[in-house]
Amino acid sequence: MARPVWSGTLSFGLLNIPVSLMSGERRTDISFRMLDSRDNSPIRYERVNAESGEEVAWKDIVKAFEYDKGSYVVLDPDDIKSAAPESHGAIEVEAFVDVTAIGPQYFEKPYVLVPAKKAEKGYVLLREALASTGRIGVARVVIRTRESLCAVMPQGDALLLLMMRYPQELVDIGEYNIPEGARGDYRISDKELAFSEQLIETMSGDWQPDQYTDEFRERLQAVITKRMKATGVVKREAEEPSVAEDASTNVVDFMALLQQSIDKNKRTPARKSAGKAEDKPGKDKPAKKASKKAAKKTPAKSPKKAAKKTAGKKRKAA
């Protein structure tokens, strides 16, 4: 059974829906290992010093950025940690936009959002609201140490999470020599356009994904199967990621939370400021006073001192 890639909450406004992130794709590429032809032993990749040719141990390896050819700036682990995003277990929707507003070039990798137990109501509520309004949610999620832009959108009975590319990762189409202007500038006649439209109509039909297969992979798999029968099979154990426990749902009163979220958005801007509010001075004074009072309390008397006092009282009474 598939294991969750990530577990946490899907948040919009004041509503939190506990979910698990499941892979929405299946890799079908056939990969190869390099072997020594003399005894079929696997070939290892070693970390070798480019100058001396000697193997380098992991403890002696540092990370560096090559800012110019042959020029590097070495980074400490703390330097990299300082730039890493704050890890938290929430997919926080920042805005809802029209489903047609985001171009296909922004979408990268699909995942399926699966609700935790007792979180079905919030899950279905968001799914139906997105479907009826024609919107998708734009959010951010931190998986391991990387913060990614993502979109939450309905697909049938499911909510999909699509990893997105940042605008900086896309090439401006204007950098390429793309033909501009009207069709008349390229001497395209009305008859040519009409025939092209007619051809498109004759080739049109419903989208049936089962009709499309990776024929090269299937032919290559047949060759591999034939060779396996002839020479035998070497099995290896598949590694699976550890599973994080699902969080319990904390959605109680949907109407109240929705109303509070709407009221909050009316009072404050839609985008959250990046900086965190600084703590106001004097907030920790009560705690300090309490600690001083606790320090002034008389310590408990030791058993020996108590015994001496009791014996003294008995002598006086005698």
Rank of each mutant, 00 (worst) to 15 (best):
residue 139 A to N: 04
residue 272 K to I: 13
residue 267 R to H: 08
residue 302 S to Y: 07
residue 80 I to G: 00
residue 76 D to P: 00
residue 216 F to I: 12
residue 21 L to Y: 06
residue 34 M to C: 09
residue 17 I to P: 03
residue 33 R to W: 05
residue 279 D to E: 14
residue 53 G to K: 02
residue 306 A to Q: 15
residue 158 A to W: 07
residue 241 P to R: 00
residue 124 V to R: 13
residue 149 L to H: 00
residue 216 F to G: 09
residue 102 I to K: 04
residue 296 K to W: 02
residue 123 Y to A: 02
residue 225 T to Y: 08
residue 115 P to F: 01
residue 228 M to K: 12
residue 142 V to F: 01
residue 65 F to G: 00
residue 194 A to Y: 05
residue 305 K to W: 09
residue 8 G to N: 06
residue 18 P to N: 03
residue 58 W to S: 11
residue 7 S to I: 08
residue 267 R to P: 03
residue 81 K to S: 09
residue 134 G to R: 00
residue 6 W to C: 05
residue 53 G to M: 01
residue 121 K to L: 11
residue 133 T to P: 07
residue 239 E to W: 10
residue 48 V to F: 03
residue 221 Q to C: 01
residue 96 F to W: 00
residue 45 Y to M: 11
residue 164 M to C: 06
residue 97 V to A: 03
residue 74 V to Y: 04
residue 282 G to A: 02
residue 259 Q to P: 01
residue 224 I to R: 01
residue 129 A to Q: 05
residue 223 V to M: 10
residue 15 L to C: 13
residue 10 L to F: 04
residue 127 R to S: 05
residue 149 L to Q: 05
residue 59 K to L: 05
residue 150 C to Q: 00
residue 167 P to N: 02
residue 147 E to P: 01
residue 49 N to G: 01
residue 261 S to N: 06
residue 121 K to N: 09
residue 140 R to Y: 08
residue 293 K to V: 07
residue 125 L to A: 12
residue 274 A to Y: 06
residue 195 F to Y: 12
residue 57 A to T: 09
residue 270 A to C: 06
residue 120 E to T: 14
residue 106 Y to C: 01
residue 311 A to W: 00
residue 80 I to M: 10
residue 304 K to L: 15
residue 203 M to E: 15
residue 160 L to I: 05
residue 258 L to D: 01
residue 299 P to A: 14
residue 58 W to R: 12
residue 186 Y to C: 04
residue 41 S to A: 13
residue 134 G to A: 04
residue 18 P to E: 02
residue 287 A to L: 09
residue 205 G to Q: 03
residue 168 Q to M: 08
residue 212 Y to E: 11
residue 13 G to L: 06
residue 138 V to R: 03
residue 236 R to G: 15
residue 267 R to S: 12
residue 284 D to H: 09
residue 111 Y to E: 05
residue 302 S to T: 14
residue 183 R to Y: 09
residue 155 Q to H: 15
residue 30 I to V: 13
residue 137 G to E: 03
residue 251 V to A: 15
residue 180 E to P: 02
residue 234 V to T: 14
residue 265 N to R: 15
residue 241 P to D: 04
residue 245 E to D: 14
residue 240 E to I: 11
residue 197 E to V: 11
residue 46 E to K: 15
residue 265 N to P: 05
residue 61 I to V: 14
residue 136 I to P: 03
residue 22 M to I: 10
residue 237 E to T: 13
residue 104 P to I: 06
residue 245 E to A: 12
residue 64 A to R: 04
residue 228 M to R: 10
residue 60 D to M: 01
residue 162 L to Q: 13
residue 279 D to Y: 07
residue 191 K to W: 06
residue 1 M to S: 13
residue 220 L to Y: 08
residue 219 R to V: 13
residue 194 A to E: 15
residue 85 P to K: 00
residue 179 P to E: 12
residue 34 M to N: 12
residue 308 K to W: 08
residue 99 V to F: 06
residue 169 E to A: 07
residue 41 S to D: 11
residue 89 G to H: 11
residue 71 S to M: 09
residue 70 G to S: 01
residue 118 K to D: 14
residue 196 S to C: 06
residue 197 E to A: 10
residue 262 I to Y: 05
residue 307 A to E: 10
residue 25 E to L: 10
residue 139 A to S: 11
residue 266 K to T: 11
residue 158 A to E: 11
residue 50 A to F: 10
residue 268 T to D: 14
residue 190 D to T: 13
residue 271 R to S: 14
residue 14 L to S: 08
residue 317 A to I: 08
residue 58 W to F: 13
residue 209 P to Q: 01
residue 30 I to N: 04
residue 269 P to Y: 03
residue 111 Y to D: 04
residue 252 V to Y: 07
